[in-house]
């Protein structure tokens, strides 16, 4: 399989890019190709990277000020007018502050708004808990009509953003502030609702999204040294979930560990447990933020503090040994 080429995981020292960077770049390209694309931001465009689009297309950019509720409602109205709005702010505000606006004015009426939320998860770092969304996947995926995408790296982000523009209906794309290694294989093509097997294995399935994918790949390498063959799945679409690929990996491996930069409640881990408990009950361990709020700190240190490390994934696998 061509995927074997990538089986070693992210090489140390390989260039890293924040997914928000890739978003900003993709948005400009979309703007050139698609006159119907408009962008809204709630005064964070330097951080969300929509500033590049704003510079090139000032007539199609709206900084609505620090007003996330109005951000979502205005985006909904632009969608009603036949445009394809991308609405950006930090994930904690997009999914949290404006939750009811997303629910009532975007998801329920099924409007073609693309919510691209950056600074998701604890790797926001220094700003601390108030700015670290650990629950946004959970909040967004319970909304009917909503598609939820968590790209793993810059390549996947760029493709997901462009795909979302052509995908009819509301989409939530979760992006990060912190640079992440490239994990997608050469020739990768993103598809909504399709998970990718990045590494084959029969002993345990590591099911991950976002920054969790590179952690899973590193963990798989460590497990291999111990004679445990781990499969690694990049589940970049949380909703609709790729049930076939996940169930089939669970069947083959009999054990699953989920890895995500999100609360262990309600995110990818929750979604996988819901699926497997009905379709293929197997032992599952969820690696993620363990039902606590974040705090200030350097991103890598926070990842270690909350157990989002390859070592912790290995421990989770070992914990299941002998079952």
């Amino acid at each position: 399989m061509t995927h074997e080429l990538n089986a070693r995981g992210p090489a140390a020292g390989s260039p890293k890019t924040a997914t928000r960077e890739a978003y900003g770049k993709a948005l400009v390209e979309l703007g050139r190709a698609r006159p119907d694309v408009v962008v809204l931001d709630a005064d964070l465009s330097k951080s969300t990277m929509t500033a590049r689009f704003a510079r090139e297309f000032p007539d199609r950019f709206y900084n609505v000020g620090i007003a996330e509720q109005n951000l979502m409602g205005t985006a909904a109205g632009l969608a009603l007018g036949g445009l394809t709005p991308f609405a950006s702010t930090f994930a904690v505000f997009a999914a949290g502050r404006a939750y009811d606006q997303v629910r009532q004015s975007i998801a329920y009426p099924g409007l073609n708004v693309k919510i691209c939320a950056t600074h998701a998860g604890i790797t926001v770092g220094a700003d601390g808990a108030t700015h670290q969304a650990i629950e946004d996947i959970a909040l967004m995926r319970v909304l009917p009509n909503m598609t939820v995408i968590v790209p793993a790296d810059d390549v996947e982000t760029e493709q997901a953003v462009k795909t979302a523009a052509s995908h009819e209906g509301p989409v939530y794309i979760r992006l990060g502030r912190h640079p992440v290694p490239r994990v997608t294989p050469e020739g990768y093509e993103f598809e909504v609702g399709k998970a990718t097997v990045l590494r084959q294995g029969d002993d345990v399935a590591l099911v991950a999204c976002g920054i969790g994918v590179s952690i899973a790949l590193s963990a798989a390498e460590m497990l291999a040294a111990r004679g445990i063959r781990a499969a690694v799945l990049n589940v970049s679409t949380i909703k609709p979930l790729d049930a076939r690929t996940i169930v089939s990996a669970a069947e083959r491996c009999g054990r699953v560990v989920t890895i995500e930069e999100h609360s262990t409640i309600g995110g990818l881990g929750g979604a996988v447990c819901e699926l497997l408990s009905e379709r293929r009950p197997v032992a599952v361990r969820r690696v993620g933020v363990p039902d606590v709020f974040g705090q200030s700190g350097p991103p890598d240190e926070l990842l270690r503090f909350y157990g989002l490390t390859p070592e912790n994934v290995v421990s989770a696998v070992e914990e299941m040994e002998g079952r």
């Binding site: 509720q69 205005t74 909904a76 632009l78 969608a79 709005p85 606006q101 009532q104 004015s105």
Partner: peptide, 18 residues
């Protein structure tokens, strides 16, 4: 679609911009 009060004017604004 409306019902949750306070949201309609934002939507109307978006429609007007469009």
């Amino acid at each position: 679609s409306t019902g949750s009060l306070g949201q309609g004017l934002s939507v109307a604004l978006g429609m007007a911009l469009a």
